[in-house]
Design a protein around this nucleic acid. Sequence first.
DNA 1: TTCGCTTAGTTATACGTATTACTAAGACAA
DNA 2: TTGTCTTAGTAATACGTATAACTAAGCGAA
Lengths: 350, 350
Amino acid sequence: MATSITRTKRGKGRDIAAPSRPTQKDIALAAGVSQAAVSLVLNKAETPSVPPATRTRILEVAQELGYRPNHPARMLRSARTMTFACVIPDITNPFYPGLVRGLQTVAAPAGYDVLIFDTDGRPEGEVRAVEWLLQGRADGVVATFFHLRASQLAVLSRNGIPLVRLESQHKPDGPLAIDSVYIDNVEAAAEMTRFLIARGHRRIAMIQAEFGPSQRRAQGYGAVMRDAGLSPDFITDSAYSEESGARAMKRLLERKERPTAVFGASDVLALGAMEAARIAGLSIPNDIAIAGFDDIPVAKLLGLTTVRQPEFDLGALAARTLVRRLLPGGLEAPGKSHELKFEIMKRTSA
Amino acid sequence: MATSITRTKRGKGRDIAAPSRPTQKDIALAAGVSQAAVSLVLNKAETPSVPPATRTRILEVAQELGYRPNHPARMLRSARTMTFACVIPDITNPFYPGLVRGLQTVAAPAGYDVLIFDTDGRPEGEVRAVEWLLQGRADGVVATFFHLRASQLAVLSRNGIPLVRLESQHKPDGPLAIDSVYIDNVEAAAEMTRFLIARGHRRIAMIQAEFGPSQRRAQGYGAVMRDAGLSPDFITDSAYSEESGARAMKRLLERKERPTAVFGASDVLALGAMEAARIAGLSIPNDIAIAGFDDIPVAKLLGLTTVRQPEFDLGALAARTLVRRLLPGGLEAPGKSHELKFEIMKRTSA
DNA sequence: TTCGCTTAGTTATACGTATTACTAAGACAA
DNA sequence: TTGTCTTAGTAATACGTATAACTAAGCGAA
C-alpha cells in the first residue's frame, strides 16, 4: 500500500505535475465540516446556521490554502458569467477604446468583466458575434451592429441576454430587452453643415462610408444643403478608415471644380482626408476646410473641427443599463432608447 | 394529470418566463438516444460506435432545436476557458488597441477569445489582475506589469496559467511557463538620442514616467548623452498620459535655458509636450524638436519622429506563444524571450 | 414526559458537458 | 451449441459550486 503524500488530484492516468487549485471540498476536509458549510460561509455575510467559531475557522483555512472560487463552476451553477461582451467593428478605431473604458468603469464595481469582440463591420463578423453570444458566454451585450436588423437580434432576448445598441438615432420602444443609447446623428450632422455654410462655404462635399451611422449623418447633411439651395455632394468609400478617407479625398481633388469644405462622416475619414490634402500641398483650412464626426482624442491635437460624441459616457450609460437589466426581473421591462447630447467642437480645420 | 405543453425547464418554483436553451439532453430525448451519444457525435469527427444514420439524425435534431454548446459547462468539464486575458495599463492608450488586434487575429482562429483587463498601471490594479486570473477565468495571459516582479507572478505558473510578458529588454530564460516578447528599448532610445545629437542638438531633455518601460529608455538615452560628453536631463511626471507630458513640458519651458530637443519616453508624453509647446507659441521643430517612443497611429499624422514598436506583431507573437504553450505538454518548456526589431521613424518633429 | 424550538450543521441534488467503462444483441466460426 | 468478435450504443461519473431540504442534539416549557 503506497502512501501518496503529494496530493495530486486530477492526476488520474498520467502523473505529470498537474497543478490544481484548492476547492471548497479541500477546505471542508481540512476544517472538518461539509462542503455546504464552506459555501455558505464564503458567500453569505450572515450565516445563522454556522456559529462564529466555525465561521472563522473555515475562513482561516480558506485563507491558508489560498482558496479562490472556481469561476467556471460558479458560472455553470448560477447561470451567470459575470461578463459583458462589447461587440464593435474594430478596437483600433480610436472611438472605441474610450467607450470600452466607460463600460469597464461601471462594470467592474458591479462585478462584471468586459470581453471585446471585433466584427470588422462585416455581416459575417456580426453573425459570428451572435452565434457566439448564444453559447452563454456573456450575461449582457453592448454592441454596434451595422448590418443585423432587430429581427435577427431578437434571438438574444429570447435567450435572456439583454442587449444595448449604440445607435445613431432614436429607436421606438419595443417589448424586448433591447435598449439603445444614441446621439441624434441627423441633427448633429445638420448643425455641422449649417456651421460650414455660415462660414461661407457653398461647395461642401461629404465623405461617406458604405454602412453604419454614416447614413444618418448623410441625411442631416443632405437636408440642410437642400434647404440652403445647395446640392449635396456625396462621395462614398467602403470603410471607416484613414485609407478610405484619403482615397475619397484624392478623388475629390482630381475634380475640375473642387469643394471648399469636406465633411467626413467620421473622424478617421476626416483624418485620412486631411492627410491626403496635405500631401497634395493644400493648406487647411485656407485651401480647403475639413470637418469630422466623433471627436476622437487626436481630433483635438490636430485641430479638427468635429462633432463630439461622448464615448466614455455612452459606454458608462450602456453598462448601467445592462446592470439594471440583470437585476431580478429586469428583463421584463420594455426596451428604452436613451439620448446623449452631442457638441460641435469648433477648432482650426474649418 | 395536467399536460404541460410549454416546455418550461428551470421553472421550478416561479413560473416566470425563464428562457432556457436546448441542451444535449433535449437532443438525446428528441432523437431517441443517450446524452453520451449526442456529445460524441457533436464533438468527434469520427464516431466508430455511432453509425452514419444515427449520426445524421442527431445532427439534424441539433440543428432543428438550434443547439449551441453551453460554454460554462464546457469550461468546467474540460478545465479550459478558451479565453486569453490581456492585462494592460489602459486600453485608451493608443499603443494597446493595435496590440489587442494582433492578439485577436491569432487567437480567434485558434478558438480563443480575448478579455481586456485594465490595471491603470497601479500596483493594486496589477494585484487584482493576478487575483482574478487565479479564479481560472483564462487559459493564458498576455500582460504588461509595471510593478509586479517575477516572484509575484510565479503563482500563475504554479497554477498552470502560462504568461507572456511584454518587456522592454531581454529576459533570461527561466524554468517556468513565463515567456516574454520584447523590443530592445535601451538600444532604441540610444539610437534615437544619437539621431538627435547628429541633428546638432546638445541640450536634449527626456520626459519620463515614474514606472514601466520608461526606465530602460532613460537608460539608453543617458548612456549616449554621457558618451557624447553631454549631461542627461531628466524630468519625471507620473503617468503615460498627455497631461503628464504637457505638465513636464511646461516645466521645461519655464527654465531660463530651454532644451532644444525633447525626447518623450512614450508617444503620448511627446504629444502632450507638443501640445504644450504649441500653446506656448513655439514652432516645431524650429523652436524646439520633439521625439517620441511607440509610433502610435497618430504619430504619423502629426509628423512625430519616434521609435516604432510593432504593436500588432507583438500581440500576434504573444498569442502564438500562448497557443503553443497550451498544446499538450507545452507548459513544461523553459520560458523564452523573443525579440522584435524597432525602427526609427524620422518625421518632421525632429 | 413529551412536544416543540433552536442550534449547527449535513445530505442530496442540479447545472451541462466529456469521457471511461461497461453491455446487449447479433454475426460468425469452430 | 458454445464462444468470440463486432456493432451500437448506454450508464455512470466527475468537474466545483450553490442551495433546498433535511436532521440530530440539546434545551425549555407545558
